[in-house]
């Protein structure tokens, strides 16, 4: 009897907590503000304009990819190959430009086409063949990264014509082209998810496949398009990353270690590993949180080796919240 009462009490959370858990994009603001405060107390430089700009510039890459990933994960799939796709598109474009004399804009189009193709391959293996997306995209990611190193003989491809660095030198909104692209994509994805029939199809695909199918939604097509969009955004990220390097070059190391920032950021932003949940705005804050931790730990002069484990712990915390919330909704 007392056990039953206790069990009931556990579920009766304060209603504001309940609402925060329900709307993750606002929930994430709390750790974000706490962390900024914490770092600020250790070193006010975290809020210096130059630091903020640096955070926004760096988070824009995982952020832009995250705007595709959020859709993909709502449909119940995931892509672990995006960081490798960044590398290969940059290397591929660079080599076309330097070795084949292809004009920059044309090489960029080919490289983006390649990223779309990789997204399509991910989709075919996952959706048609039925390999779990984690395995598909892990394998494809390794292969893609490998190709990238082979293609470049392990070395950055340069010199490249000056135009390659052009977009990278621009400072729209005082930040960068990628950042602006990310904001634009965030608005578009937000509208798609919340205001369009596509959004309804995306959520249905990830929540209840049978529900989607009986009303005539082609879940395979929805997932395929989501894979391709994610990979395409990774391609854009790769090209712009190259453009933004101090000495623009097709470096196969581009995107190294970025997987963690993308996936962890998106999950921190409230996307569910189980599909059916997520938002573009949450994704922005999730990715921002990751970068605040990275930059904050540098500014506050923590041992840099702490960065990765701390990021990992934050991701685990977010994943745990996700699981708990999923169980509650299963009841």
């Amino acid at each position: 009897m007392s056990q039953i009462t206790r069990a009931r009490a556990r579920f009766r959370m304060p209603s504001f907590m309940h609402r925060l858990l329900a709307r993750h994009e606002s929930a994430i603001l709390i750790p974000l503000i706490l962390l900024v405060t914490f770092f600020y107390l250790r070193n006010p430089a975290i809020l210096a304009p130059i630091t903020i700009t640096s955070i926004l510039r760096t988070m824009a890459f995982p952020g832009l990819i995250g705007m595709g990933m959020v859709i993909l994960m709502i449909t119940g799939e995931i892509d672990l190959s995006t960081a490798s796709v960044m590398s290969l598109t940059a290397v591929f474009a660079a080599s076309l430009i330097r070795d084949a004399g292809v004009p920059v804009w044309q090489a960029s189009i080919y490289a983006l086409g390649l990223s779309l193709l990789i997204g399509f391959i991910n989709a075919v293996l996952t959706v048609r063949v039925g390999v779990h997306a984690v395995l598909t995209t892990l394998g494809v990611g390794l292969a893609v990264r490998g190709f990238s190193y082979l293609f470049a003989n392990g070395l950055p491809i340069y010199p490249l014509p000056e135009e390659v660095g052009y977009l990278g030198t621009l400072r729209p909104l005082g930040v960068s082209v990628v950042f602006v692209l990310m904001i634009i994509m965030m608005v578009i994805v937000h509208v798609i998810l919340n205001r369009t029939t596509w959004g309804a199809a995306i959520f249905a695909t990830g929540t209840n496949k049978l529900a989607a199918q009986i009303v005539g939604i082609n879940t395979n097509r929805v997932k395929t398009l989501a894979f391709m969009l994610t990979s395409f955004l990774a391609g854009c990220s790769g090209l712009l990353y190259m453009s933004q390097l101090p000495l623009p070059s097709g470096d196969p190391i581009i995107g190294k270690n970025l997987e963690l920032d993308i996936i962890a950021g998106v999950i921190l932003g409230g996307v569910s590993f189980f599909g059916g949940r997520g938002s573009a705005i949450g994704t922005l804050f999730g990715v921002m949180l990751m970068q605040v931790i990275r930059t904050g730990m540098v500014v506050a002069q923590f041992d840099p080796y702490w960065q990765i484990p701390v990021l990992g712990l934050f991701m685990l915390a977010a994943a745990s919240v996700d699981v708990i919330r999923h169980r509650r909704s299963e009841r």
Binding site: A200, T207, N208, L210, A211, A212, I214, G276, S329
Partner: peptide, 8 residues
């Protein structure tokens, strides 16, 4: 099994 989209 109704087949509803719980999150909508």
């Amino acid at each position: 099994d109704l087949a509803l989209v719980n999150v909508r």
